[in-house]
C-alpha cells in the first residue's frame, strides 16, 4: 500500500514551560523537541501494515520550520521511505491553515491510506486529520484504536465514551490514530539512522490556508498548593474522611 503519514514536531512535554516575551507564545528556551506521540504510533502502524501485506511505501510529511526535517529524519530512520517538508516560518495554531497545506500536498499523491495522529500533544486540538479528509473528500475515521485492511476495504474500531464503534470503509481513506493501535513505536536502529541519511527528503514552501483562530494570550495555570501526608496505613482513613468532608467538601 502507498501510505502517507502526517507528523508534527512538538515540544517534549516533560518540560517546565515558560511564556514568551510577547505573552502569546511558549518560549522555546531550553526545550527539546520530538515527534508527537500519536504521530509516532501512526508511523509505526503504517510500517506494520506494509510489513504485514508486503511491499508498499510510506511517505512522511511535516509542516514547519527547517527543524521539522529532523523529525522527518527520525521517521525515515524508523523505516519510512520518503519525506516531504512543507516549509513555514512557524506552525500556525489554526489547524485549518495546516490542513489546507497538507491537503494540497496529499491531493495527487495517489495514497491508499493517509494517517494522522488523533491529536497533537502540544496543540491538543485534534482537528487537522478530519479537516484534511473533508478537503480531499476522503472517507474518514477518527480516533482509531484498531485497524485492518483487506483488499480495498478497511475496518476500524474507535473508542467512544463507554464503548467501542466498529466501522468499515473503502480505500483510499484517512484515519486518525489513537493509542491502543500499536503498543509502542519502534526506536530507530543504528542501521536505520544510517539508511535515513540517503532517503529522499523534498522541501518546498507550505501553501497555508487562511487563519481564523488566533492566540491572544498564553499563561501558566496556577501552581497546585503543596499537599500533605495525612498519615500512614488504614489508621489515617478517619482523618482523610474528615478532611474530605470539612475542608475539601467533596464528600
Amino acid at each position: 500500500m502507498k501510505i502517507a503519514v502526517c507528523i508534527k514536531r512538538v515540544a517534549d512535554m516533560g518540560a517546565r514551560f515558560q511564556i514568551g516575551a510577547d505573552g502569546a507564545s511558549v518560549s522555546d528556551a531550553g526545550i527539546k523537541y520530538d515527534m508527537s506521540d500519536f504521530d509516532e504510533w501512526a508511523v509505526e502502524a503504517a510500517l506494520q501494515l506494509n510489513e504485514k501485506h508486503g511491499g508498499g511505501e510510506v511517505t512522511v510529511i511535516s509542516l514547519g520550520p527547517d527543524s521539522a526535517q529532523e523529525t522527518l529524519r527520525k521517521a525515515l530512520a524508523m523505516g519510512a521511505d520518503k519525506a516531504v517538508h512543507l516549509k513555514a516560518d512557524r506552525i500556525p495554531f489554526d489547524g485549518f491553515a495546516i490542513a489546507e497545506a497538507l491537503a494540497a500536498e496529499l491531493k495527487d499523491g495517489g495514497f491508499d491510506l493517509v494517517l494522522f495522529g488523533r491529536i497533537a500533544v502540544d496543540s491538543a486540538a485534534g482537528v487537522t486529520g478530519a479537516m484534511v479528509a473533508e478537503l480531499l473528500d476522503m472517507p474518514c475515521v477518527t480516533a482509531v484504536s484498531k485497524l485492518e485492511v483487506s483488499g480495498t476495504t478497511g475496518t476500524a474500531e474507535r473508542q467512544v465514551e463507554g464503548g467501542v464503534e466498529t466501522l468499515s470503509f473503502p480505500l483510499p481513506a484517512l484515519c486518525t490514530i489513537d493509542q491502543g493501535l500499536v503498543t509502542q513505536a519502534r526506536y530507530p536502529s543504528l542501521k536505520g539512522i544510517m539508511a535515513a541519511k540517503k532517503k529522499p527528503m523534498e522541501s518546498k514552501p507550505a501553501q497555508l490556508g487562511a487563519i481564523s483562530v488566533n492566540v491572544s494570550k498564553m499563561e501558566l495555570p496556577p501552581e497546585r498548593s503543596a499537599g500533605r501526608i495525612v498519615g500512614e496505613g488504614a489508621a489515617a482513613v478517619p482523618e482523610l474522611i474528615r478532611l474530605l468532608q470539612t475542608e475539601a467538601k467533596v464528600l
Partner: peptide
C-alpha cells in the same frame, strides 16, 4: 483552551 498537556492555557480569538 489548555494545551501542552494542561501545562499552558491559551486564550484564542476567533475571527
Amino acid at each position: 483552551h489548555p494545551m501542552n498537556t494542561n501545562k499552558v492555557i491559551a486564550t484564542m480569538v476567533l475571527s
